[in-house]
């Protein structure tokens, strides 16, 4: 048990230093959309509703996973260092004014991949292993 705790502590400390290396997810887009590469700020702004328009003038629609998804929690933790409760609270204030919406939620990673494959402006985060030819990786935390 003791050994395990130390390991966890070591991981926690090492986590910010190895954000990309430790990340097992990637952000995917429709390859046809022509989105080259996104920065972490871009990803943050798009997912948290600051803007949905990319520099290329394309609109981007972020796809989110359901609230009980472990990946979702990992994604937000690694992206903006927030837990899901904080993210939900954030959205609760904005939803109230009705001007900005939170990202569309799909049921699973698979659905997310399909949605991206079908919609040109969609963006989604999925496990690395889910990436296939239908989608292209535009951002990865390892970078």
């Amino acid at each position: 048990m003791k050994t395990l705790r130390y390991l966890l502590l070591a991981l926690l400390i090492a986590a910010p230093a190895l954000p990309a290396g430790a990340a097992d997810w990637v952000l995917i887009a429709n390859p046809k959309a022509g989105i080259g590469h996104l920065s972490q700020d871009d990803v943050t702004n798009i997912y948290l509703g600051r803007y949905r328009r990319l520099a290329s003038g394309l609109t981007a629609e972020p796809i989110d996973l359901p609230g009980d998804s472990l990946l979702k929690a990992r994604f937000y933790r690694q992206l903006v260092d927030k837990n899901l409760a904080e993210i939900n609270a954030y959205w609760a204030r904005l939803v109230f004014s009705g001007k900005t919406r939170p990202p569309r939620v799909v049921a699973s990673e698979e659905d997310a991949v399909q949605f991206v494959a079908r919609n040109l402006d969609a963006l989604a985060y999925v496990d690395k292993s889910m990436v296939d030819a239908r989608v292209s990786v535009v951002f990865s935390m390892s970078e």
Partner: peptide, 17 residues
């Protein structure tokens, strides 16, 4: 915090609140 959220999201509605 509310003001910074409103500003982040450019939500003038929330800011006005």
């Amino acid at each position: 915090s509310t003001a910074s959220v409103a500003t982040f999201a450019n939500d003038d509605q929330l800011a006005r609140e």
